[in-house]
Amino acid sequence: MSAGNMRLTLKVWRQSNTDTQGGFESYNLDGVSPDMSFLEMFDILNEQLIEENKEPVAFDHDCREGICGSCSMFINGRPHGPLKGVTTCQLHMRSFQDGDTITVEPWRAGAFPVIKDLVVDRDGFDRIISAGGFVSVNTGNAQDANSLPIPKENADDAFSAAACIACGACVAACKNASAMLFVSAKISQLALLPQGQAERNIRAEKMVAQMDAEGFGNCTNTHACSAECPKEISFENIARMNREYIGAKSSSKGV
């Protein structure tokens, strides 16, 4: 990592735990390289804080390759920052100007309580998956090619929906903190494939019920979610989820 010459002012949300009030702290950072990723810039900030005997900023990160869905920073008013189709870890400082002030907040949603600083609790997503985002039949070993015919369009749509990394940027971007892009992607990836048919109705019913129980908001079709999604999950999934849910409620055996 080459030393650079960018000077930045960071306004970062600091909060010691879920139950305490948080607030913004301002930090000046020198020598930032435009080639650094946003998270590497935070590593530099944390090293500086540790040297000053201050508490480093807690933030989520794991693979730093844009595929794990861990990073979750709301940067200058947008989830994962200013670029389209990019996670925070794949955002580089060349997207900013020398002398910029950058405001960094955690995802804000009642269903995503702040654990510490920029780290939020996204277990709600896991509980939605546990409610029905799986196939419980044993699918066995990998099938011979084409033994299970799947239309190309369905395979493509299912694969695109499955690209969702569950980072929560859709919830963060939505003015209603709605999780519908996430839930609809997880419903779609199975509803489009033969393996998902057995539990198709119950899946839609249970996952939507769990989404509501978690306290996420309702969709107003602003499309902010798919515009900000680092995996560019299509808004079409939400319409499919609406069809799946309406169809399930009006045809399933459950009362």
Partner: peptide
């Protein structure tokens, strides 16, 4: 669904 609001938002971007 969002009890604590954002300090900075840029919704016109999306």
């Amino acid at each position: 669904a969002r009890p604590v609001k954002y300090a900075v938002t840029n919704p016109s971007a999306n």
